[in-house]
Design a protein around this nucleic acid. Structure first.
Lengths: 246, 246
DNA sequence: TAGTGGTCTAGACCACACG
DNA sequence: GTGTGGTCTAGACCACTAC
């Protein structure tokens, strides 16, 4: 009883419906930003219950094709993509944003002195046991959209002396402006689905992919200056690199 | 009427339930690989309908914490993570797999001569219009798990002469074994949610994050030898790099 | 006030796994 | 056969948005 005749059979109804809607989105029949018919209307159009329509919409949300707004409707996702160079680790965020036509801004959620965990001690090569570090969490915005959550650890001396500036601006710019030149880094990149907590910070649906950029950055003399991780919305961000094995 | 007393209020029931289950998983009360109670039993335990339990389980699936198997049950996800070095682009897959204790294997889905698209022509720096290239799609396995889908384009001469070997093995190993030495690459890394098609190839739920490793690899003389993209399960894979700006 | 998506229920039937 | 997750229904109420 697939209504608007289509598709191979023995496919669940909600899949058939979401695939039909997906085709309309990808072919441009529903344009980015456009509102889809309401769940009720879609149910009537396809001859199914609202529950089934909602499952179909959930499929589209998981694929990042639409978002929903309570009281307003279902909207086709608009595309953005900002590329960050791995050759100048994360800290180029502000320059990269500016260069690609966005206004960058940070919102500091937390900036406090804490006892370094063994892992952080190791990454920052702190020799004294139980040394203190500064721990910052901040949200990075491109224009008005939150696109990344940055969790950073600074050695005590740096965090203390640059406290005010680090809370107001971007990490790399602040360090550079104070004569601290980073010229090496060890990084890893992976991806995780957004938890509830992260989905609220970054205004994404539960489970949406986030890129995790894990880094330790060093000064010329191999002294670690900062480490941390940047969790960024994968629908907004991309990393690139040029590799030479010579 | 939140049953097993807990949590702030005005949180949806399905969220409260999934967060409780999540806590039990992360604290180890449900161990990796272990089966959770059935949907029916969970519904009784929490005093909610099966629909609500299913929504809670869906939340956990989206966060990568559990997987379901029809007829069998709900199981806590087991953790794996294989790290690939970006300094030796994608092609080190087999060496990296072996080194980290997995048996690597490829399954070729397609290997055929096609007319190069403008994009591929550009990436491979093909001068003649409408040149032909070899297009390969293959699935990469770690032991018995599919972990990546590799889509590769080779210039005609290479694809033709190494046809049999490229279909049977890993790209980099095959090229190296034939005296083709890659020593530079341009790469980008991003992440996307799995579509239906990809979720079937890689045996993951719809929407699970996939890492997209996009690459063009060059021979010493700056000649592009191969380009393509590797879509890998983000729960299995991680990329790292060491960066020097000296 | 009307329309939208968000939550939740109770119940039905199906497909698959296992003994 | 029994138990499991997968699909689907019909209907209720709530929260939010807009007019």
């Amino acid at each position: 009883m697939v209504p608007s005749g289509q598709e191979a059979d023995n496919q669940p109804l909600h899949v058939a419906i979401s695939e039909q809607l997906k085709a309309k989105i990808e072919s441009g029949k529903y344009e980015p930003g456009e509102r889809l018919p309401s769940e009720f209307d879609l149910g009537e159009a396809f001859g199914v219950s609202r529950t089934t329509v909602r499952k179909a919409i959930a499929n589209l949300i998981q694929q990042g094709l639409v978002t929903t707004q309570q009281g307003k409707g279902i909207f086709v996702t608009e595309q953005h993509k900002i590329t960050f160079s791995m050759s100048n680790p994360l800290m180029t965020f502000d320059a990269a944003l500016r260069q690609q036509g966005y206004q960058g801004r940070v919102q500091s959620l937390r900036f406090q002195r804490v006892k370094a965990s063994p892992e952080i001690s190791h990454r920052l090569q702190l020799s004294t046991r139980g040394a203190e570090v500064y721990w910052q969490e901040k949200i990075i915005y491109a224009d008005e959209s939150p696109i990344a959550l940055d969790m950073v650890y600074y050695p005590e001396t740096i965090g203390k002396s640059l406290s005010a500036q680090l809370q107001a601006g971007f990490t790399y710019s602040t360090l550079l402006a104070n004569g601290i030149d980073l010229n090496a880094a060890k990084v890893t990149l992976e991806s995780i689905p957004a938890t509830y907590e992260l989905s609220e910070y970054l205004a994404v649906p539960l489970g949406m992919p986030l890129l995790v950029f894990n880094y330790v950055a060093y000064q010329g003399n191999h002294q670690p200056i900062v480490c941390g991780k940047t969790l960024s919305r994968s629908d907004w961000t991309c990393y690139n690199a040029e590799i030479n094995l010579d």
